[in-house]
Design a protein around this nucleic acid. Structure first.
Length: 209
DNA sequence: CGGATTTGACCCGCGC
DNA sequence: GCGCGGGTCAAATCCG
């Protein structure tokens, strides 16, 4: 499928080395939140009777993260990269400082609240920035159908992550373990070593809030 | 017909 | 306190 040039970076503790890189002038805001455990509960309204309004989502101040977040850049002309999981788009918003919209996806598997944000780099339209949030509680559908032969279990995937991360400079596993990507797209690692192009970038996936 | 996508509205947090 | 921007919901629509 699409040849990709992923640009990984795990977001974990707030001690992340954020700042050495940047997504370009487009990205102006600094990441500020750390990975937090999620706990969904009562809608903010509280009463829970007949909600007249639509947007009635449980939200808590200071908490909006669900699990580890992982962002990476991919050289691709298509926004939605095939990663073995099924995603349902639930929103799209225009991005400030960027002519390209940002798409919001959610894993279709119930009880799997992994989310994914996809946007195009404004300075490099061929680059897609994908941010995963959370971890899958199931296996990739593709693997179950023999589509992705190498994604049968978390272990190989984890190994792949490590190898990739290590190759890009994450020599210390401890620096990424907390921010393990919930999954990885099928990374093409040609003989000539495409990973050479991978450079750590992006930390704490989020911008403003 | 069922599932996925589109799209406008709504809500919230943060900066000014 | 207000406005802005990001994130999410859900009805409508589209597509296989």
């Amino acid at each position: 499928m699409t040849p990709v040039t992923p640009n990984f970076s795990a977001s974990s503790s707030s001690t992340e080395a954020a700042g050495d890189e940047d997504w370009g002038p487009c990205k102006v805001d600094q990441p500020k939140q750390e990975v937090q455990e999620e706990e969904k509960h009562a809608p903010r309204g509280g009463e829970g009777s007949d909600k007249a309004k639509k947007a009635n989502k449980p939200r808590k101040k200071g908490e909006r993260q669900r699990g580890p977040r992982f962002a990476f850049m991919t050289k691709s002309e298509v926004d939605h990269l095939e990663d073995g999981y099924r995603w349902r788009k639930y929103g799209q918003k225009a991005v400030k400082n960027s002519p390209y919209p940002r798409s919001y996806y959610r894993c279709t598997a119930q009880k799997c609240n992994v989310k994914k944000r996809v946007e195009r780099s404004c300075q490099d339209p061929t680059t897609v920035i994908t941010t995963y949030e959370g971890q899958h509680t199931h296996h990739s559908p593709a693997s179950l159908r023999g589509g992705g032969a190498h994604m049968l279990s978390p272990s190989p995937t984890t190994n792949l992550r490590r190898s990739v991360l290590l190759q890009q400079g994450y020599t210390n596993p401890n620096t990424y373990h907390a921010g393990l990507p919930p999954l990885l797209p099928q990374i093409h690692v040609p003989d000539h070593g495409l990973l050479q192009d991978i450079v750590p970038s992006f930390t704490h996936g989020n911008q403003r809030r």
